[in-house]
Write a protein that binds this DNA or RNA. Structure first.
Length: 209
DNA sequence: ATGTCGATTTGCT
DNA sequence: GCAAATCGACATA
């Protein structure tokens, strides 16, 4: 079974993947998984190389801190396995994976993607003619390249528009770099939690460090 | 009704 | 390195 010599065939992640109660663990497990979108007839996708965990109610950095249940955050309260997408700074959509059971608003922000398929489509969406450095390195950039919009918030990650797949890539524990999350200075103590995870040495991780 | 501010990115100094 | 871009969600009234 030389899996690596076969064409890469993705296996959609099972519902159980998202029900794990430890969102930090899910954030690590998402490294090496593939996020594929099929939006406006264009199929694009890549490997997740950077994530951040947001632990809901008790996490000052989370939009759901203090059990703040609003129109925007409502999707995070859904059962794990859907996307939470919101508009940041008025111009960038940020994509999250909702985890845990219903009514527990945990989520994992996808911060870095290594382009894998549909490169032409991604370039078109980003208004570029060739792959620039850090093309999909950053949550706003990768969301744009994949065509993900705030209106897609709440869609399942098991298709048809959004799909999260396992393609057999294994990321060992010692290949995972943990560090504090980015851009959450407002979160006080919680801003120091080492809940940002990257694949060691991967080029496609976000700029801020 | 109004004011503040972002889980970012880019361009200019 | 710093500030602008840009708009909806949220808080306050």
């Amino acid at each position: 079974m030389k899996e690596r010599n076969k064409p890469k065939k993705g296996r959609t992640l099972p519902a159980s993947f998202y029900l794990e109660s430890d969102v930090v663990l899910v954030a690590k497990r998402l490294l090496g998984k593939f996020l594929v979108t099929n939006i406006d007839g264009i199929r694009t996708g890549g490997m997740i190389v950077e994530t951040e965990a947001y632990a809901g109610v008790t996490d000052r950095a989370s939009h759901a801190f203090g059990n703040r249940r609003t129109k925007r955050t409502e999707v995070m309260y859904a059962k794990g396995g859907v996307a939470y997408v919101y508009l940041c700074y008025g111009m960038y959509a940020l994509t999250n994976v909702v985890t845990h059971s219903r009514d527990v608003p945990h989520a994992v922000l996808i911060r870095g993607l290594q382009p894998a398929e549909g490169i032409a489509g991604m370039l078109k969406r980003s208004g570029k003619s060739k792959i620039a450095p850090r093309f999909t390195a950053g949550p706003g950039l990768l969301s744009r390249a994949l065509g993900i919009l705030p209106s897609h918030s709440g869609l399942p990650l098991s298709g048809p528009k959004l799909v999260l797949e396992d393609r057999g890539v294994v990321v060992a524990e010692d290949e995972i770099v943990a560090s504090p999350r980015v851009g959450v200075d407002y979160a006080g103590e919680d801003a120091r939690l080492p809940w940002r995870f990257r694949i060691l040495g991967n080029y496609w991780t976000s700029p801020a460090s």
